[in-house]
Design a protein around this nucleic acid. Sequence first.
DNA 1: GCTATTAACTTACGACCGTTCGTTAGCCAA
DNA 2: TTGGCTAACGAACGGTCGTAAGTTAATAGC
Lengths: 209, 209
Amino acid sequence: MSPRKSALEAVATRTRIIGRALEVASADGLEGLTIGRLAADLGMSKAGVIGHFGTKEALQLAVLDAAVERFRLRVPARVVGAEPGTERLGRAFGEWLDFMMEGEGHGGCFLTSAASEFDGRPGPVRDAVIAALTSWSEYVTAELAIAARNGTLPPDTDVDQLAFELNGVVLAAEQAIQLYRDPRAPARARAAITRLLRGVTPPGAERAG
Amino acid sequence: MSPRKSALEAVATRTRIIGRALEVASADGLEGLTIGRLAADLGMSKAGVIGHFGTKEALQLAVLDAAVERFRLRVPARVVGAEPGTERLGRAFGEWLDFMMEGEGHGGCFLTSAASEFDGRPGPVRDAVIAALTSWSEYVTAELAIAARNGTLPPDTDVDQLAFELNGVVLAAEQAIQLYRDPRAPARARAAITRLLRGVTPPGAERAG
DNA sequence: GCTATTAACTTACGACCGTTCGTTAGCCAA
DNA sequence: TTGGCTAACGAACGGTCGTAAGTTAATAGC
């Protein structure tokens, strides 16, 4: 319609494309991204869309990058001021759960869904997904190690095992929210995380054993 | 090539189609199923493939049904003889983990991946996925209720909360196996499940508060 | 042996996919 | 004012998608 040509407008357009792509990919997955649909949504031509990235895979990687950045700003960045260890980690998981609920309608955190989408398809996209999740996993493990060092957790804590289980809680919450729309999911997840981080017994097993 | 016409051959062909579709869908997802590719893999025409189902969605539902049936035979059916409650449930989760490892290369249990694939796409397929997962969830909850009734678990156990956390462990295992190919995943999952079902404290928190 | 049934076939359709091409039009520096 | 740069365009490419129509041929019931 009305062509703009300055380089400044170009990055604005690129940002606009990625923003919309983020929404679409959150709902339909990274593979559900379609240049034609994206162009239609944005009121521009397919060539105008793909021109900013060159190839669809490059677009997917850009979207993934934007998602990681969004997550970083939404979750870890908000708890940098908290006390390192279980305190900070608990706050971080809480922020993550809030983040999930905010995006309930539009697919929530698609990092985790991209993980299951590309787990069997080798390539740059899968590598990027692995890198992003690994980064988060290392963040969690590092905080747990701090807690184990300063006495909040026992010094012989198996931090990898604990990180594994915390990740499971988040995945269960994601599924319950996205698939079942279960409003009790965040509360369940919070309870499980609190218990894991504080080292109390599992639900309803307070004295069994 | 060589057309067969008996009704007996027809169900054999249908079974063959679903079998291959199960493999493809396990690797690439239910949405990755393609009639053309399926036909090429089986050495038949697209019309010959879709003729058995009428529509692609019907094919997806048939594949989903076959997957549920396979899961039933592989997991719950193998532990019907075990003692009801945590004993049987622990065995069932163990079988499930074995099942995951068997299918490591070809995508494992795609029930869970179909869940994240269709969580944002209303329709018959999503409904079928929800029904299948709900059925499993009810199975778990019922076993936990038995355990709470016979004293293996405390009578005031929050069985839904416990089922939620058990589900999370399985999801974490699935991700670790499929995405990271982490060989320690089954052991981690087994440890977490055992702890949840026996009511001992979280990892490395044996005496912390 | 004849006929009705039907599994599987070939062919074709329209739609959409990702990508490439050449063109147009506004910005910026010279 | 002019010329290079480039964002965005329209159009077309070959390919694949799901589906429909019509054909062939082997079976099953009479």
